[in-house]
């Protein structure tokens, strides 16, 4: 189970990479493994949208499951991964890299403090799978 130490996590298996005032959002290795082969990705926000923490930003489907991806923080969407819907398998092969979903300009970086660090997320995952 790959849980990079430089990211922040939600209990719902999203990650966020903080670059200055920008956050890059995707789903974790654990989440992609649970969903199995991803066959469909839809980004449900557009550039310029104001989003709140907890709003859905993407929908994923595998053959047997569906999952929504929720914003770990609030802010303004400044980029979406346009290539991802055409290559959903990347969510399985490269969840922390090319499978990023949206970039957000954070309106309240203080929200980051509510998120899990790698160690806390690893513990959370162990509890979920136990």
């Amino acid at each position: 189970m790959n849980i990079p130490s430089d990211l922040k996590y939600t209990p719902n298996d999203e990650w966020i990479r903080v670059e200055g005032n920008t956050g890059v959002v995707g789903i974790t290795d654990f989440a992609q493994d649970q969903l199995s082969d991803i066959v469909y990705v839809e980004i449900v926000v557009s550039v310029g949208d104001m989003v709140k923490k907890g709003d859905a930003c993407a929908t994923l489907e595998s053959v047997k499951a569906a999952a929504d991806v929720y914003m770990p923080v609030s802010g303004k969407i400044i980029a979406i991964n346009e290539a991802l819907p055409d290559t959903p398998e990347v969510v399985n092969s490269d969840p922390y890299g090319n499978a990023w979903m949206v970039k957000v300009e954070m309106s309240d970086p203080g929200e980051l403090n509510d998120l899990l660090d790698a160690a806390a997320y690893e513990k959370h995952v162990q509890e979920k799978s136990g």
Partner: peptide, 13 residues
């Protein structure tokens, strides 16, 4: 196919 759209998986969504 595309059964992940349906009620038995999505439920209230």
């Amino acid at each position: 196919t595309l059964t992940a759209r349906e009620q038995h998986i999505r439920r209230e969504k």
